[in-house]
Amino acid sequence: MPRAEKLWITVLALLTSIAPLATDMYLPALPHVVDDLGTTASGVQLTLTAFLVGLAVGQLVIGPLSDARGRRPLLLIGASVCTLAGVAVAFAPSIEFMVGARFVQGFAGAAGIVLARAVIVDRTSGRRTAQLFTLMMAINGVAPVVAPLIGSGLVESIGWRGIFGVLAGLAVLMVVGVLVAVPESLPVERRRSGGLRRTAADIASVLRRGPYLAWTLVLGLSFSTMFAYISGSSFVLQDVLGLSTTGYAAAFAANAGGLVLASLLGARWDADPRLKATIGVAVLVTAAAALLVVVTLAGAPTWPVLALLFLTVASLGLIMGNATALATNHVRDVAGTGSALLGALQFGLGAAVSPLVGSSAAAMAVVMLATAGLAVIALLTARRLDPADAVTTPAAAVV
């Protein structure tokens, strides 16, 4: 891979890392936020929900807008506002203010997520798209590996507020990365005019594409399974399993490392993306079912629970990049809008499951199995609606 392309992909991965960084870095500090702001576990989990709702809504606005205005200006604006929102969270005087600022942070951060996908679709095609999505996930997967480790160290020295100051600094790096390495990928002649009426028509067109919707649901439901784990992990691993803050961070990082490893192996495996996604979903639902059994019938023994959580998270390495490529393959004419709806559903479902988990291991396992089971149904539907996988046809990248 040429050096310029490596830099380009790395910057896009950094842009999409806002989601794992802004969630995982402060997970070890959630009990501290509860004490500092005088709230509850469910109250502080609303800050996760607000952030994810912001990501979902932001993508719905920014994605279609980029089809008309281009990708690069919106990337720069989004990263800049995300910086300011991170500073606001760091100085939050109450849980209510924090929830609002987290929504803004998510809304602005959505630009990096939705437009990074759109840029890849703009500049690549065929199996190359699936490989780059998976490779970007592997690079991006470093974020959940290091984020809790960094967070557990920072919370003892600079507190949870300092963590959000660090996140604001990372958003500044995103601005610099776009300026240096991400040129405009949507030429003026390919932009779509027509205002709100055209946007509504594009959204309606995308929603009528069955294979796109099915693969998008595979992605969203699988991500929800992982997010049920993410939102409950701090309480379950520390309060139920008895891990220390450092032990929790190490376990969380190990699981994220499994995601990175699976993503790297998936990127190197030159196979039908549908096959790789199918294997990933099969592992996901099997691990989630086994987790529910050991939590409810065996008293949540530490090592079996940790092993099953590792398998659950690692399976996403085979699902997310391939499901994303398979879905976006059907919306190349409106890549921004298609990426927006995909991301909105992904993070909207994640936001919906977060408050359901609470601090119970059993509740976390039930939610994980329910979403994984629905992902199986979505996968079977996707394979029926999209039997001829166009993504497997090799095509030269146009980067």
Rank of each mutant, 00 (worst) to 15 (best):
Q59N: 08
L149F: 11
R208P: 00
L60E: 06
S193T: 15
G169E: 08
A249F: 09
S185N: 08
S157K: 13
P304Y: 09
A256G: 12
A298G: 05
L154I: 12
I158L: 12
F252Y: 14
L154G: 08
A344L: 02
A168W: 01
V366D: 02
W215R: 11
C82S: 14
S193Q: 06
W269N: 04
V175D: 14
G106Y: 06
F252L: 13
A22L: 04
D272G: 03
V99N: 04
A327D: 08
F164L: 11
G317D: 07
G126R: 02
L309N: 13
A370F: 05
A101Y: 04
I230D: 12
L65D: 07
L207I: 11
L84T: 02
S233A: 15
A287Y: 00
G321V: 01
V353R: 01
R102T: 01
F97M: 12
D272S: 07
A204V: 10
S233L: 00
M98L: 05
A323Y: 13
T10L: 04
A335N: 10
A130H: 06
T246W: 07
T47I: 03
R190H: 14
L27Y: 12
D386A: 11
V178Q: 10
R274N: 04
S263N: 13
P28V: 03
G210T: 07
L341G: 00
L84W: 05
A365L: 04
R274W: 09
V295S: 03
L380D: 00
L217A: 15
L306V: 15
P387D: 14
T302Q: 07
A351V: 07
M25D: 06
L380M: 09
D35Q: 11
S244G: 08
V294G: 11
A362W: 03
D202T: 09
S244R: 12
F223E: 02
L75R: 15
P394T: 02
S231L: 10
D386H: 14
M136H: 06
D35N: 09
M320P: 00
L12F: 08
L30V: 14
V155W: 07
A68V: 01
R69M: 09
L380I: 09
A147H: 14
L154E: 10
G317T: 09
L65F: 06
L135R: 08
V104Q: 02
G54Y: 09
L306G: 05
N329P: 02
L135V: 04
L318Y: 15
L52I: 06
A19L: 09
L207G: 12
V145I: 15
D24S: 10
M320K: 13
G86F: 03
E156K: 13
W215I: 01
A290N: 03
L60H: 07
V240P: 01
P187A: 11
A298L: 13
A92F: 00
A249V: 01
V178D: 08
S125Q: 14
L213D: 03
G141V: 01
G348C: 04
A111S: 10
G336I: 13
S231Q: 11
L374R: 07
D122A: 06
E184M: 06
R71Y: 07
S231N: 08
G38Y: 04
